[in-house]
Structures are given as structure tokens and as C-alpha cells.
Simulated scan of single mutants.
Amino acid sequence: MTTLYRLLTGEDDSAFCHKVSEALSKGWALHGSPSYAWDQRQGRMYCAQAVIKDVDARYDPSMKLGAQ
């Protein structure tokens, strides 16, 4: 059993929420609280959310984490 980790990032908009929701629908679980950062130059809020998932596979750096 291997625990995989991903950090989902993006502009704080509905597309980011859909990205997180898609990961949850594929069995990933939230890991910790979301983080937010204001980009002064762009005038936009960005966010990040860590997710984890246990898989029955040996970890390999070539794994496509989003496909797990």
C-alpha cells in the first residue's frame, strides 16, 4: 500500500473547486486546510489544497498522479 500526495493549485474560482471535487470523486481525500495567496501583480486570489490517496501499487516517480 502506498499513500500518494498531490497539491492542487489554481485561481480561486469555480474551476479550482471543480478540480478539487473531481479529485474527491476519484477517491482522493483532503489533507489539511486549503491555503490562499493574493497575487498583487495579477490582482487575483490563488489557492492550494493538498489531497492524498492510498493505492495498491508501489510508488514510481513516473506515475501520473492525476490518473490514479
Rank of each mutant, 00 (worst) to 15 (best):
V55S: 01
L65C: 06
C47R: 02
V20N: 00
F16N: 02
A57V: 03
K26S: 09
D13L: 08
L30F: 08
G43N: 08
K26P: 06
V51R: 01
D13I: 07
P34G: 04
H18N: 12
Q68D: 06
D54Q: 15
P61M: 06
L65F: 05
R41V: 12
S21V: 04
Q40T: 11
A23N: 03
P34A: 04
L7Q: 05
A23R: 00
Q40F: 10
D60L: 10
T9P: 04
K53T: 01
Y59W: 11
V55Y: 00
G27T: 06
D12A: 13
A23T: 00
A67F: 05
S35K: 06
Y59D: 00
G32M: 07
G27L: 07
C47Y: 00
V55R: 01
V51D: 01
D13V: 07
G10S: 04
R44C: 14
Q42C: 11
T3M: 13
S35N: 08
S14G: 11
A57F: 00
R6Q: 15
Y5M: 06
I52K: 14
L24Y: 06
A57L: 05
A23C: 09
S35R: 09
Y59S: 00
T3Y: 08
G66F: 01
G32Y: 05
Q42T: 09
A15C: 12
Q68K: 12
I52F: 07
L30D: 02
D12E: 12
M1T: 13
R44L: 15
T3S: 10
R41W: 12
H18R: 14
A50D: 03
Y46L: 06
A48T: 02
R6S: 10
P61D: 06
S33A: 14
A15W: 09
Y46A: 04
L24T: 05
L7C: 08
A67L: 11
Q68E: 13
L4Q: 04
D39S: 12
D13Q: 09
T2G: 04
A15E: 14
W38Q: 07
M1I: 11
S35G: 10
P34N: 03
E11N: 12
D54M: 11
L30G: 00
Q40Y: 11
D13N: 15
G43T: 09
A50H: 07
A67C: 09
Y5N: 07
E11W: 08
G43W: 08
G27A: 07
Y36C: 13
C17V: 14
R44Y: 10
Q68T: 09
M1P: 12
H31W: 12
M45V: 14
D13H: 09
M63V: 02
G32P: 03
E11C: 10
A23H: 03
V55L: 04
C47L: 07
A57S: 10
A48Q: 07
V55C: 05
D12V: 04
Y59G: 00
Y46E: 04
L8F: 01
K26I: 05
M45D: 11
